Amino acid sequence: MLFACFVAAFISPAVAENLTVAEVLKPAELGDRYVFELKCARDPFSVKCTYGTIKGDGVNEEQLVEYLKVFLPEIKLYPSQCFQKAKVRNIILCNGLKFDGQKRSAIPDWENDTLYYDVVYWEPVEYKQLVIHHELFHMVDVHDDGRLYQDDAWKRLLPETFKYGNGGRNAMGDKTMSLLTDDVSGFVTKYSTTGVEEDKAETFAHMILHPRYLAKRAQSEGLLEAKMFQTKRLLKQFCPEMGDDFWKQAASISRPDDMN
């Protein structure tokens, strides 16, 4: 077994009323390094937030084991201080995740200090890896300055004529949106053009998953180079432990789909 688990003795009060059946997972790979509780939903749940309703279903053992093979190596990249400063107190693994009825692969619930990940949604391993980093960055982005949908420093990097789309929510359901593409200079995916918050999260996630590909593009794309520099600076200011060594560690991982 990859983990030992037991019925949670304590569930965050913000979700306790509706998320009544959950288990705390204790993967040996994580040990006691991290401040968050990794939980697995075993029954359907519904959590009401001020900005919408989060719903999901339980996960069976086979689904959980397969997902942890993807999830744990990615999470281990991060220093414990990142989760503490991003106020990630709970990570909940589930199935059938939805936000106000819309299917989601993951949801950053900063109101309740919780990240939700759907262990089944969209099977490709590469997409699951991307989502892990992308959604965690949203938690960082919220807590570094209290703003998610506005970033004046990032905006100054962009051409004056550029305008983002109408947000990531309206681009859900298209599997091609988060695929790497150089169709739009300075942007790593189509999804990154939908909003500043998605641009930042996509840039960060692909810097971890495809560092050599992005570094090569940045040689001829000044905007992408500036975004990568800004991302590294933001992370180091937010969490000093995420400096050069963090990026070297990420780049040292051999990934089958890495694009050189």
Rank of each mutant, 00 (worst) to 15 (best):
F99Q: 03
F83T: 03
T193F: 09
Q102H: 12
L214R: 03
L93G: 07
T181N: 13
E197S: 14
R217S: 02
I91Y: 01
D100T: 06
V184C: 13
L209K: 05
D113N: 09
T181G: 12
G101Q: 03
L97V: 07
E202N: 13
D152H: 05
K128T: 04
V131H: 07
M177Y: 09
G96P: 03
Q219L: 15
G168P: 09
Y117M: 13
G186Q: 09
P108F: 07
A171M: 14
F137P: 00
G165C: 10
L179W: 11
C94M: 07
W154H: 11
E197K: 09
D113W: 04
I92D: 06
A86K: 04
P108L: 01
N166M: 10
K175Y: 14
I92E: 02
K216L: 10
R147D: 14
V188C: 12
K190P: 01
K175F: 12
Y116H: 09
M139V: 06
G96R: 04
K190A: 08
W122C: 07
I92K: 09
S192Q: 06
M177D: 00
P108Y: 04
D109M: 00
G168D: 02
E123A: 13
D118N: 11
A201M: 08
T161D: 14
D141M: 12
E123D: 15
L209V: 05
T193Y: 09
K85V: 00
K216P: 01
A106N: 00
P211N: 05
Q219H: 12
Y121S: 09
H143F: 14
R217D: 06
E160H: 12
V131Q: 06
T194W: 08
D144M: 13
K216C: 03
Q102W: 10
S105G: 10
L148T: 13
T176G: 11
Q84S: 13
R217P: 09
H143V: 02
P211W: 02
Q102P: 03
I132N: 06
G101V: 08
R212C: 02
L214H: 04
P211D: 01
Q219Y: 10
E111Q: 12
R147K: 15
L179Y: 13
T203Y: 11
D183A: 15
Y164E: 08
Q129N: 13
A215R: 03
G168W: 01
W154L: 11
L209H: 05
Y149T: 13
D109N: 03
A218R: 03
V119P: 07
D144Y: 00
L148A: 12
R156C: 11
E111A: 00
F162S: 11
G195V: 08
A153S: 11
